[in-house]
Design a protein around this nucleic acid. Structure first.
Lengths: 154, 154
DNA sequence: AAAAATACAGCAATATATTGACATAGATTT
DNA sequence: AAATCTATGTCAATATATTGCTGTATTTTT
């Protein structure tokens, strides 16, 4: 089928417009889903990082590595981490190998919170993905990875 | 194929994590793509609204309708609109039919900006969608619509 | 060994996102 | 007609996002 330039433009415009909107809704509804625990979607993303094998092995993660992994600026991350520090979900220790660097570690309180978050987060995701098969979810993930890789390469 | 609960969780966690990241990159790289014009991705989204048939016919759009269309809060929109007012890309007029309401309209300066933005925006989108066919782009849009509808229904 | 370049985390300014609240205006109920 | 409820846009507080910059520390070059 021949596809006009107008159609291409319309689809890509709509696609990115919806991407923008879906992320806003993800934050709004996701934060509401765990309202009783008083954390935001970004904070739970940070907590999730401590359960990655590499981070467990290294006994924490630096601000720089966390920034790269989450794809947010170090400055934005500092603000989020400060809030989590105040709530005592994480702690910062000086990196023994590099005095410039700090290692972020999860606390026991943070671990308890993470356990408590599993059920509401799972329910939220299941609700958001209602009617989308596992194969389709895998396709979406594949496409998002591709788009992210393309934008990172800019 | 039997899919374990762990796999489901992993895919949905990754999917939403990537959604969060792709939106951040969209704003970062999109704003950089039009850096010479000094507007953000949200501001160009607002400008694009004035070219919708219904908005053209009605001679503008209210803050409330704009908020609903963009899926952002009225309060966030007020801030973005104020910046665009200062730059004189838009103007506000009292709604003749409802004194509480204001109609937002694009200015000639805003129209010139919108014209100038078309090429860099198109190039940005094309680059971000490199290697993704038109049919696949249509699929992504379909999935995003579905996820948005699901989250709106929460 | 000393100088230069780079890395790390955070400060500052700015933009955008949320929720709760408020003053004014319109719609509905009594 | 008056009272009550709902709608509209903005104010305020807070969270998170960016870029540019800075002080300190490490690495690389001379």
């Amino acid at each position: 089928m021949e596809v006009s330039n107008e159609s291409y433009s319309e689809v890509s415009n709509r696609l990115f417009f919806r991407l923008f909107q879906s992320a806003n809704l993800l934050h709004k509804k996701g934060t509401a889903a765990v309202e009783e625990y008083g954390v935001t979607t970004q904070q739970w993303s940070v907590l999730g990082v401590f359960y990655r094998n590499q981070v467990i092995e290294e006994g924490g993660i630096s601000v720089g590595d966390l920034s790269e992994y989450l794809l947010v600026s170090r400055q934005s991350l500092t603000g989020t981490l400060d809030l989590m520090l105040n709530k005592k979900y994480i702690k910062k220790v000086t990196n023994p190998r590099d005095k410039r660097s700090k290692l972020i570690q999860i606390t026991p309180k943070g671990r308890t919170l993470w356990s408590n978050l599993q059920l509401p987060i799972t329910e939220f995701y299941q609700s958001a993905l209602e009617g989308i098969s596992f194969d389709d979810q895998t396709s979406i993930l594949h496409y998002l990875n591709k788009i992210i890789n393309n934008m990172e390469a800019m």
